[in-house]
Amino acid sequence: MSRTVLITGATGTVSTALMDALSGADVDLRALVRDKSKADGPAGKGAEVFVGDLGDPRSLPPAFEGVRDVWLLTPNDPRAPENSMNALWAARQAGVERVVRLSVVGAAHDAPNRSGRLHALSDRELEVCGMRWTILRPHWFMQNLLNEAGDIAATGTFSLNMASARIGMIDARDIAECAARVLLDGPDRHHGATYTLTGPRSLTFGEVAGRLGLALGRPVTYLPVGDDTRRTALLGHGAPRWIADMLEEYAQAYASGWGDFTTGTVAGLLGRPPRDVVEFARDHAAAFTSGGG
């Protein structure tokens, strides 16, 4: 009998890739979207779409009714623990069997960034919720490089405030495929597990630039900038101040060596190595050529 899987954050990068990864599997997909106008994307992937907001608990019961598994992805903002709490309460009330939650790399009460500390609160709540659970803590997304696609296409350069940080970055598609593996393996096999997911190697952004150039067939250069310069650019592009602050905290942590590690978890779950940044760049070459993400 098919299990009904509810996908939250259904229009985001990882959740969209997760629906692709679950395509053809013996599951009934259900998607939660905040904006009805964005329902076509999940619906086109075969999901039954419900409109609801994790920030509004009254909107959630219809989406959770009859669900066996929840993929829990909360917006990255100060209300993330509240959003997670509302989802877990709706899940418990609906008799959900398992929650698979997307956390962040290094989530801990003493993490050097507010996102990690907030996610630690929600991770702990999940661990004692009484349902089966699995937590995924992915490293820095390769897809973040798509935010620099316009500059790379126009000038062959990109700028980040990461100094010479070395990071075990991961393709979001690998995160999604790990999530699909956990969901398809059944509710007991991964219960109580927290998986830290990384790419195959730890790279500096100078090395990333070299690999992007290799994939694109033209030089790409990384230009380190200071925190103030990056912050001004983010705010100028409309990023909320809280997001700019959070990203600065991550950059400072990475520059100190905090992200210089990899794990073998992706290979252990998928039976293959995680994607390299060269493969990522080749698959997204059009974005880096035209500037469109």
Rank of each mutant, 00 (worst) to 15 (best):
T4G: 04
N83A: 13
N76A: 07
L22Q: 05
R92G: 12
G292W: 11
G116H: 08
T13V: 03
T196H: 08
A153I: 07
A91Y: 04
M162Q: 15
G217F: 03
T229L: 10
P187S: 08
Q143D: 15
L54C: 01
L18F: 03
P57M: 02
A180E: 03
D123I: 03
R58A: 11
S23P: 00
D56Q: 05
G168E: 00
V208C: 13
E177T: 01
F64S: 06
D69M: 00
V266M: 00
T74Y: 08
L102V: 13
A108M: 03
G213Y: 00
G217A: 02
D69C: 00
S115R: 06
D53H: 01
S23W: 01
R272N: 02
K36G: 11
G9H: 10
G66T: 00
D171L: 02
F141G: 02
L223Q: 11
F205D: 02
R211F: 12
R231H: 11
A287V: 14
T157Q: 13
G66Q: 01
T204N: 06
Y254A: 01
L270H: 02
A108K: 07
T11P: 06
L22S: 05
L102F: 08
G292I: 10
V225H: 09
F280T: 06
S59H: 03
V105Y: 14
M246E: 14
D110W: 00
G130W: 09
T198V: 04
R132L: 10
L214Q: 14
T155L: 01
R124F: 07
V49P: 03
N76T: 12
S159K: 14
P81C: 15
